[in-house]
């Protein structure tokens, strides 16, 4: 899904990732905790990565 073409869809998908990840972390199993954290943090991490890539491209 392309951010520029489907901005609302991407925003909702990103929101879904974060919320699902944080909800998964409520379960006590360590695997779910790690998976949930990775899911929740992925939008932020992807955003930072995309920002640096775009910045380097100028």
């Amino acid at each position: 899904m392309n951010w520029a073409r489907h901005p609302t869809g991407v925003a909702l998908a990103i929101t879904g990732l974060t919320v699902t990840g944080l909800a998964l972390m409520l379960t006590e199993g360590p695997t779910w905790k790690v998976a949930g954290f990775l899911l929740a943090a992925s939008p932020l991490a992807a955003g930072l990565a995309a920002y640096w890539v775009q910045r380097r491209r100028g």
Binding site: W3, A4, R5, P7, T8, V10, A11, L12, T15, A46, G47, A49, A50, Y51, W52, V53, Q54, R55
Partner: peptide, 17 residues
């Protein structure tokens, strides 16, 4: 914000400022 932001970022690459 979700409703209105679409037109403001159309044509922009993700992460582009």
């Amino acid at each position: 914000g979700i409703v209105i932001y679409g037109p403001f970022i159309k044509g922009l690459a993700f992460g582009m400022i």
